[in-house]
Write a protein that binds this DNA or RNA. Structure first.
Lengths: 194, 194
DNA sequence: CCGATTATGGACCAATCAGTCCAGATAGAG
DNA sequence: CTCTATCTGGACTGATTGGTCCATAATCGG
């Protein structure tokens, strides 16, 4: 009908995501967001509602992308268990800056899950998605004999997601890559040796 | 020399800790703190310096108390591994409110470790203390034959701390107690069965 | 080319922020 | 009792907060 937006909405959300991810929700000001998104104040409020809605959209985007990435990397060509190990090991291989940034989902849970029901809900559904992905991989691993049949795939899936979230915290706390690698290896070995 | 303080410094820090724990650093205003501590503005600035120093003191207090509690609960009367299991299981047994509040140390890492070197340093040393405590318990468990000799105690210690931090996140994300129990059981069983 | 509709940017807002100042209260030392 | 050092509480600060208002610009359908 009328004048079209001058910016790419998707790109704007992505940039907002970067700021929220880096600084957290409270520590991010609307000015921070506008500068990063490269748009005007009114455009932001017209397009996204307010800071909180923009955050939710950024968080959902993050969860969607990160779950998709997880599922792709878990796709087991050769060995399901090796794929799991690669996923856990990947954190140790990140740059120091990436490890310090951590996982936006974990940051969101720590900062907001208690007081913000919408954040809690988004986090919960993302967790279920990841849990299920891990569970499927464990099932494949069982079929290939990489994991003994006595292992309950659902439990193992939860166990792996828990370890992944732990690694995110441990990494952000400044643990050296070698320590992260030890944890990753030990975790995967726990499944093999059951 | 002159007029003594009218409040108990220790108690004041403890109350500040409660507020920071509940709301996080950025979301806590100085007014929140004064109200909870029951002291005047000037008393707070005179005694603790500023909001940031007060936070650090509260965090250190939290880490000290929580590490002491961990070490006491890990003291293995009968079975070291059972003590570990009790520690992990305790999270699942907390009230919903306690699980939602999470661990102040994990919250601090997620919100501040990246940009606040002092918080990072406090968190790192607390992690080393807990890691060492877990390592000692694993060593005891090995001596008693609860854990096979092939298990590296240091690695296992790191693995356990990682799982504990993961549980803190998982719990705060709203996982039901049953799921937390599964993770705790699975984690401990990983050591037994190696 | 025109009118309806939407986007934009800068001025503006009240509220809140962390932190300071100061006047008066209070207690120990002598 | 007095002097002095500290503590206390409330008024106050400039800066920043998230969010709104409005005048102008730009684009579409007709």
């Amino acid at each position: 009908m009328a004048r079209p937006k001058e910016f790419d909405r998707d790109e704007a959300v992505r940039r907002a995501m970067g700021v929220f991810w880096e600084k957290g929700y409270e520590a991010t000001s609307t000015d921070d967001l506008l500068r990063a998104m490269g748009i005007g104040r009114q455009s932001m409020y017209d397009t996204f509602g307010d800071k909180h809605r923009l955050y939710l959209e950024a968080l959902q985007r993050y969860q969607a992308e990160s779950a998709a990435s997880l599922m792709e990397r878990l796709r087991a060509e050769d060995s399901p268990l090796a794929a799991v190990e690669r996923v856990l090991m990947a954190i140790a291989s990140e740059s120091a800056a990436e490890r310090a940034r951590g996982c936006m989902g974990v940051n969101a849970i720590a900062e907001l899950a208690q007081k913000d029901a919408e954040v809690a809900s988004v986090s919960k559904s993302a967790a279920m998605t990841c849990e299920a992905a891990f569970e499927r991989v464990v099932q494949q691993a069982k079929r290939r004999g990489e994991v003994p049949p006595s292992v309950d795939a659902r439990q193992a899936g939860r166990f792996l997601l828990n370890a992944l979230q732990g690694l995110r915290v441990t990494a952000k706390a400044g643990a050296p890559p070698a320590a992260l690698r030890e944890v990753a290896t030990f975790t995967v070995a726990s499944l093999r040796a059951r």
